[in-house]
């Protein structure tokens, strides 16, 4: 290889790095340039006193509070639905499944993890239609349906992180309790799960982020532009990412557009925070692993 080629490859790589960094800083910089001015408390609460809004005493009409509350309820509902199922399935995959069951199950979890979120949304929507026709005509796309669909979306992530953090435990840790007379389940309960907790937890935090940012699922299953703070599981609701999508095509004045930028910054902040939190938890795991001989 001659010198020229080497120099070219080097230059190309550096150019790629600079393009990537440039592009992402352009996006974030642009967002802040346009939206930093509106990041004030009234972006979230409008004219309503914050405490009254949080205690649900008064409706917030021109702020992001209902959308944030909607996203919050949505995330809580879907993560708490997906968590027990995902944990159990992940533990089963890592500790019990063998042979052909293992192969078939892990293939199907791979498929589930890869299904585009819009298809999951469509599935949720058709469940709503199905329930509406056959059970109760009071059921429409709503918080419940969205929450369930999002739970389906993150279920494979939780299964996989649980399975992975259990499977990567060193053989020594695995055998310790068994050598002391633990049964298979005692070993899982007292040693394996506690030892892999931070790995599992960081996976869960990432799943929370995934729920908070997903737009495709909720736009098919009940998110709307104006609904106020959700009153029940069967009502439609607002959500931060849907609000951003909605504003991008339906804004009528510069003020609304600026609110869209503000909402983007808030969503970006939430996701970055969750991401860093997951990272810290993982780091904590690594540090503990150093001390744990």
């Amino acid at each position: 290889m001659n010198r020229l080629w080497e120099t070219l490859i080097k230059a190309f790589s550096w150019a790629c790095g600079i393009i990537l960094l440039g592009a992402i800083s352009c996006i974030i910089g642009y967002l802040f340039m346009k939206g930093a001015g509106v990041i004030r408390l009234d972006l979230i609460f409008g004219d309503t006193p914050p405490l009254d809004a949080i205690l649900l005493k008064r409706q917030v009409l021109d702020g992001l509070f209902p959308a944030m509350a909607g996203t919050f309820f949505l995330v809580c509902f879907s993560v708490f639905t997906a968590l027990p199922l995902g944990l159990a399935a992940g533990i089963y995959m890592s500790e019990y499944a063998g042979g052909s069951i293992r192969r078939v199950f892990s293939f199907s979890f791979d498929i589930l993890a890869g299904i585009p979120s819009i298809v999951i949304g469509l599935f949720g929507f058709s469940i709503a239609v199905f329930l509406h026709r056959h059970f109760s005509d009071r059921i429409f796309p709503c918080l419940l349906i969205s929450g369930l669909s999002l739970a389906f979306l993150v279920l494979p992530y939780i299964i996989r992180t649980t399975q992975l953090s259990l499977e990567t435990l060193p053989a020594r840790t695995r055998l310790t309790a068994l050598a002391l007379g633990a049964t298979r389940f005692q070993n899982i309960r007292y040693v394996l799960v506690p030892q892999s907790l931070s790995g599992i937890l960081s996976g869960v935090v990432l799943a929370v982020g995934r729920c908070a940012e997903d737009t495709a699922v909720i736009m098919l299953t009940g998110a709307v532009a104006m609904a106020g703070v959700p009153q029940s599981l069967l009502s439609s609701y607002e959500a931060l990412p849907f609000y951003i999508y909605y504003i991008s095509s339906q804004y009528t004045n510069p003020h609304e557009l600026a609110t869209g930028y503000g909402a983007s910054i808030i969503l970006l902040g939430i996701c970055t925070f969750l991401f860093l939190a997951a990272f810290m938890i993982q780091k904590g795991l690594a540090r503990r692993a150093l001390y744990y001989p």
Binding site: L85, A89, Y92, M93, Y96, V104, F109, V119
Partner: peptide, 28 residues
């Protein structure tokens, strides 16, 4: 008996997730 039950309790959610994967296909 307890060990068997525990395995069953862990197995069912896994099976449910597999059924979900199929159910999405069937619905479409």
């Amino acid at each position: 008996q307890f060990e068997k039950t525990a395995e069953m309790v862990l197995f069912l959610p896994a099976l449910l997730s597999v059924i979900l994967t199929l159910a999405i296909f069937v619905f479409m």
